Structure formats: C-alpha cells, structure tokens
Simulated scan of single mutants.
Amino acid sequence: MAFPTTEVQRCIIHQIRSSTRYVSYKDVKQFTADLKPVYKASTEETALSALDEFEAKWGGKYPLAVKSWRVNWNELSTMFKYSPEIRKLIYTTNAIENFNRQLRKVTKTKSAFVSDDALMKILYLTTMSIVDKWTMPIKDWGSILGNLLIFFGDRVKITL
C-alpha cells in the first residue's frame, strides 16, 4: 500500500445526494433535515444515536437510503476523531470541486488533443491560472494547523 496510514472520509454531501436518490421529491426536504443531527453531531456516539432515530423514522419508507448510511458508516465517521476545525477542513470540498470543474471546463470543449503533452500543457497552464487566483487565506488557519500538528505531528512539515 502506498499510503498505509491513510484514513478515508467519504464526502458527506455526496452521501446525502446518493441516499436522496431513493427518496420521493416531496420528502427530500424533511429527510435531509432529519439527517443533520447525524453528520453535525459532536461525537460518533451521538451521531449513531441520531442515526438510530433517523432509521426509526425513515427506515420503513426508504430502507435503501438509510442502509447506505449504515453500509458506509466506517468511511463517514472518520471525521468524529478530530476537532471541529479539522472536520470543517475535511468535509468542505468546495475548493477541490471548483478546481476540478475549472479543469473540466478547458478539456470538455476539445474532442481530442494532438498529444498527451498538449493535454498536460493546457492542464498546467490552467492550474497556474487557478492558483494565481487563490488569495483568500483559510479561516482560522493557525488553529487548524495547531490541531493538525496534534494529530499528525510526524507527517505535517512546517517551514519557517
């Protein structure tokens, strides 16, 4: 295994989207509202208790939607090991999704590239353009970095 100490955290938003595929449109709003206590819980025990309540309410009507949370729980609950600051960093994937969207935008209009090098060059230039626009610092970065050092001190490198 290339990264033996890797911990997997499944994207909560993608899990919600996946589970609501099985839910009638008229129930989606209440269904997702009832899911909030599960993924917003402060501890894994509280989250599991909320998931039990959620299952009691919705499990009979939408068993596949609830089952997907149970089946994927090991990869959904990784975040409960960490502080709220690190959790937010883990489950806010907007920056990553935005980056991927911008890369897709420049490649989807082309049906073919002259060579692999041509594709790599356009992706490189697009990446450089995107990186130039990253000027906003991450909110509360000092606190987040401190928490990362507590959990991953042997893997986080700080340059002064």
Rank of each mutant, 00 (worst) to 15 (best):
M1R: 14
M1D: 08
A2E: 12
F3K: 10
P4K: 14
T5G: 09
T6N: 06
E7Q: 15
E7I: 14
Q9K: 00
Q9Y: 02
R10N: 01
R10F: 14
H14I: 14
Q15V: 04
I16W: 00
R17P: 02
R17N: 14
S18T: 07
S19G: 06
R21L: 08
R21I: 11
Y22Q: 01
V23C: 08
S24H: 00
Y25H: 06
K26S: 12
K26Y: 06
K29F: 09
Q30Y: 04
F31T: 02
F31A: 04
F31P: 00
T32I: 15
A33M: 10
A33Y: 04
D34C: 13
P37Y: 04
P37V: 02
Y39P: 02
S42W: 00
S42P: 00
S42H: 06
T43E: 01
T43M: 09
E44K: 13
E44D: 14
E45G: 09
T46P: 03
A47V: 04
A47C: 03
L48W: 10
S49R: 15
A50M: 03
D52S: 15
D52G: 14
F54K: 06
F54W: 05
E55A: 13
K57S: 06
G59M: 10
G59E: 07
G59R: 10
K61W: 06
Y62V: 01
Y62D: 10
P63Q: 03
P63Y: 06
P63E: 11
P63W: 03
P63F: 04
L64T: 08
A65S: 02
A65I: 10
V66W: 10
S68I: 15
W69Q: 05
W69P: 03
N74Q: 09
E75H: 01
E75G: 13
L76T: 08
L76D: 05
M79I: 15
F80W: 15
K81L: 13
Y82F: 06
Y82C: 04
P84M: 12
P84L: 12
I86S: 11
I86M: 02
I86A: 06
R87K: 12
K88A: 05
L89V: 14
I90T: 12
Y91V: 15
T93L: 00
A95G: 11
R101D: 08
Q102A: 09
Q102T: 12
Q102E: 11
L103S: 11
L103M: 03
L103K: 12
K105Q: 13
K108M: 03
K108G: 13
K110P: 09
K110Q: 13
S111Q: 11
F113S: 02
V114W: 04
S115W: 00
A118E: 06
A118S: 12
K121R: 07
I122Y: 04
I122L: 10
L125N: 03
T126G: 02
T127D: 01
M128Q: 03
S129F: 08
I130A: 02
V131T: 05
D132P: 09
D132H: 08
K133R: 15
W134L: 12
T135E: 10
T135C: 10
M136D: 09
P137L: 11
I138A: 09
D140Q: 13
D140H: 11
W141S: 13
W141P: 04
I144Q: 00
G146M: 11
G146A: 13
G146K: 13
N147F: 02
L148V: 09
L149D: 01
I150D: 15
F151C: 06
F151E: 01
F151H: 05
F152V: 01
F152D: 03
G153T: 05
G153M: 03
K157T: 08
L160M: 11
L160A: 12
